[in-house]
Design a protein around this nucleic acid. Sequence first.
DNA 1: GCTCAGAATTGGCTTGACCAATATCCGAGA
DNA 2: TCTCGGATATTGGTCAAGCCAATTCTGAGC
Lengths: 242, 242
Amino acid sequence: MARYHAIKIICAATGLTNAMSEPRRLYQQIADQVRSLVLRGQYPPGARLPAERELAQQLGVSRPSLREALIALEIEGAIEIRMGSGIYVLSSSKPISSGRSLGESPTELMQARALIESALIVQATAAMKEDTIELLQQILSTMRAEIAAGRKPMEQDRQFHLAIAQQAGNAVLAEIVANLFDERHSPMSERIRGRFETPESWVIALHEHEAVVLALEARDPLAAQAAMHSHLTASGRRWLEG
Amino acid sequence: MARYHAIKIICAATGLTNAMSEPRRLYQQIADQVRSLVLRGQYPPGARLPAERELAQQLGVSRPSLREALIALEIEGAIEIRMGSGIYVLSSSKPISSGRSLGESPTELMQARALIESALIVQATAAMKEDTIELLQQILSTMRAEIAAGRKPMEQDRQFHLAIAQQAGNAVLAEIVANLFDERHSPMSERIRGRFETPESWVIALHEHEAVVLALEARDPLAAQAAMHSHLTASGRRWLEG
DNA sequence: GCTCAGAATTGGCTTGACCAATATCCGAGA
DNA sequence: TCTCGGATATTGGTCAAGCCAATTCTGAGC
């Protein structure tokens, strides 16, 4: 009884409906709620959140469920829980304490990709073969079809970046590029991802990919580097800001 | 009552005493327990863990506490929880850059390091703090002493590259740099290494490191990039050709 | 004004229960 | 004998209420 009530409240506040959103676990929804409270500036860094009992009641959920969400946020590094004292918002910038390398920030992940793939594509341009360019164009073609069909061309995206990396002829770098790409879909990252995967954002991403291929066709290393760097930084922004 | 019993059991199994170990939260201790069960091979990737109720009883803790630990492990990507089905062990999450293939090609490994660290040091130069430069000089100083004493300043070498990587302020990139460095000491790589580690070659490497620091002191990104790239390619040559 | 003990607050953890999703089993029908 | 479908058991998801422990607050006594 109370449960359905709570979910309804949460979904309404999040702008989701029960029907379309795949039923995420309650603690994830609660974590989103609390995160948005913080991001909304209602609780600035250093501030203390309401007590667990109160916050649970305020969100219409039970205390154990709230606690699960708080643990998730604690692992992310968004809050700090001090026994007997309260729940405190940490500064969004990475806490000095570190240690928890688990909380890899999406920002840093995309920065790393931008740095590595930008440098890589310079070498790849020099070694670029006609075959590879055709492959890239074919990937883009499939990407267009997927978008038109309302699907997410995630796999094509991966192939695109991997094909370029492989063209540089260094298996170590290619593996790093692949791993960094896949990292975006780790459980951690999935959770943080907002509603960034709209059809519109994929269209924009498609155009950025096309710009990269154009530079490659022209055998222009610097243009390719600029296009790739621009794509990955923009992609990171979309990912985070929705 | 039951609670103290549980903590005692856990601490005994973990080899900790209540007195000396700062009392970590229970869910963290439980997560460690489960993690060790998995690492011990008792539950290989893909295997299903006991049900929550059973596992909780087995570890001597309550179900909510166990659930908190499972959520932490789920976020880490160590396990997957499927509603109504069970808790499954995921393939051990790989570090961002690792894997057996890395060590198999020393040439490519050093090329990758050259590309990444060269790009990285450009950003690091901009963010370089006086403290870090002093740290680097201190590392070089120790390096000189080690060489003079006839030892191999391997650890100082590692610290040097890591300190620069960390200065760029990106944990993901820093981790990659560290992993690539360590990769050189994999069994495979060790075997390939020739006479590389003569005192003379270490002296040359020391001078290359000094050139990097000089460029950093001058706040000259391009010079730093050139020095780092030159160092790593030369280092790769020495490693292979002896 | 300061100190310190006790009360109030707050997180930590447990017990017990019910709901919902999934898996399993077993019998009816082909 | 095999297959299919539904009843049943298993398993995760969530809630309610309560007690313990750490911290903070309060006020009496100095």
